[in-house]
Structure formats: structure tokens, C-alpha cells
């Protein structure tokens, strides 16, 4: 028990995490490329044309995984935030800020592809559908987090303030989601729901899963690259950076 704890805290130190992250980046980058290629092949070539939606539906191979990831990344950020606040580990704050831009990107991607999909489906670029609206709010939450961190000069304070915001956000996300759904049923705004046809072809599901895994690997790759940049930026004056990382 105690030995495993010590090991974890060893890697929680930026000095030992930096080279480890460097070694992991190529593997995850390769996984991203392979999985994305497989996912796109299944999604664009193998999966059958949808009976009602024609070829336009194929955007879901980006849209659905992007939506999943945008929500999932926020939860991961909240996890690192909680860890950072309770154990005061420097790496946690760095991980939280390294994940945020990717999360925001996926939230934006999900909104964009949703709107592209919406035009042929609903005849409008934007529908006040409960999910689209919640996704938009999630995007705002990401922007708020990034803006707050960017506005604070002292990195330690930026980490802590960001962590508090991420935790407040993650508590609020379900409440917001629920309230938006409640609002949606009251107003009967979008009668077309985004729910997919109940019998989704097996290959479609496979394509979505492959793409989700690809996005996952992409997130990890980007987070590791960004964490390495943040570590260098913050520890520029420390001995180990001068000795090891600047060669």
C-alpha cells in the first residue's frame, strides 16, 4: 500500500514525469493515427447508407465521439482538480490546464458537426434542442476555465482557481443538463430528437467506437505534449531542466 503510494507521488513530480511523458507521446500519436484511419474507413466505406438520412448521417462518426469526449474530458479535468486541491500536487494543476483546450476543441467540434448535420435533417443550422444547448453551455464552461487561467499571472493561483472552477462546473453540468431538458419539454421547441434510429447497424457502432478510441488517444497525446510545455515553462529556473531537458 505504502510503496504504491510512494511510486505514484514519484511520478507526480514534474521532473520525473517530463521524460516519461516524452516517451509516451509517440506511442499515443501512432495509436491516434491508426485508430482514426480504421474508424474513418469503417465509417465512410464499410457502414451502410442510412435508409432515411442518406449519406449525410456519416457525420455522426465525428459528432458522437466528439460529444462524448467533450463531456468526458471535463470530468477528467475535475478529477485532476480534486486531486490537486486535496494533495497539493503540482502536476495535477498542469494536467487540468493541459486538457482544457482539447476539451474545448471537442465541444466546438461537436457543435459544428451538430449544426452541419442539423441543416439537412431539420432544415436549420441551429435548433434549440436540449443536447445542443447543453453542449453549447459546456463549451462556455471550457472557455470560462481557459479565460480564468489565462488571466491569472501566478501559476499556483491559476491552478487552484482553475481547479475550484472545474469542480464547481462539474457539479453544475448535470443540473444544467437537467434544467435545459426540463426547459425543452416545456417549450416543445425541437420536435425532432437527435436520438438515433433504435436499430443501429453493427458497423456504425463499430465506427463510432473506433473514432471514440482515436479521439481518446488524441486527447492523451495532446495533453502530454501540452503538459511537457507547461512543465518547461514553469520550471525553467530549476536545476533538472537546465541539466536534462535542454540538451
Amino acid at each position: 500500500m505504502s510503496t504504491s503510494l510512494i511510486n505514484w507521488f514519484k511520478f507526480a513530480s514534474p521532473a520525473s514525469f517530463y521524460p516519461l511523458a516524452g516517451r509516451m507521446v509517440p506511442w499515443f500519436a501512432a495509436a491516434t493515427l491508426l485508430l482514426a484511419a480504421a474508424g474513418l474507413w469503417v465509417g465512410l466505406a464499410v457502414a451502410p447508407t442510412d435508409a432515411q438520412q442518406g449519406e449525410g448521417y456519416r457525420i455522426i462518426f465525428v459528432h458522437v465521439p466528439a460529444s462524448w469526449m467533450s463531456m468526458f474530458i471535463y470530468c477528467v479535468m475535475a478529477f485532476w482538480a480534486a486531486l490537486g486541491l486535496s494533495f497539493n500536487t503540482r502536476l495535477s494543476g498542469m494536467m487540468t490546464s493541459a486538457l482544457a483546450p482539447t476539451g474545448a476543441l471537442f465541444a466546438f467540434l461537436s457543435l459544428w458537426t451538430g449544426s452541419l448535420w442539423g441543416k439537412p435533417m431539420w432544415g436549420a443550422w441551429w435548433v434549440w434542442d436540449a443536447r445542443l444547448t447543453s453542449q453549447l453551455i459546456l463549451f462556455f464552461l471550457y472557455l470560462g476555465f481557459i479565460a480564468l487561467q489565462a488571466a491569472i499571472d501566478d501559476p499556483r493561483r491559476a491552478d487552484k482557481a482553475g481547479a475550484i472552477l472545474a469542480l464547481v462546473g462539474v457539479v453544475n453540468v448535470p443540473i444544467i443538463y437537467f434544467s435545459v431538458q426540463w426547459w425543452n419539454t416545456l417549450h416543445q421547441g425541437a420536435s425532432v430528437s437527435m436520438t438515433k434510429a433504435p436499430s443501429m447497424a453493427h458497423t456504425m457502432l463499430l465506427g463510432i467506437r473506433l473514432m471514440a478510441l482515436a479521439f481518446w488517444a488524441y486527447t492523451i497525446t495532446m495533453a502530454l505534449i501540452r503538459v511537457r510545455c507547461i512543465i518547461l515553462e514553469r520550471e525553467l529556473t530549476s536545476e533538472w531542466v537546465k541539466k536534462n531537458a535542454m540538451e
Binding site: 499571472d153 501566478d154 514553469r234 529556473t237
Partner: peptide, 8 residues
């Protein structure tokens, strides 16, 4: 030890 930003 007290550190402000990057400066010790």
C-alpha cells in the same frame, strides 16, 4: 522556502 512566480 518562498517562491513568487519563477523567482525564489
Amino acid at each position: 522556502t518562498c517562491q513568487r512566480g519563477e523567482r525564489v
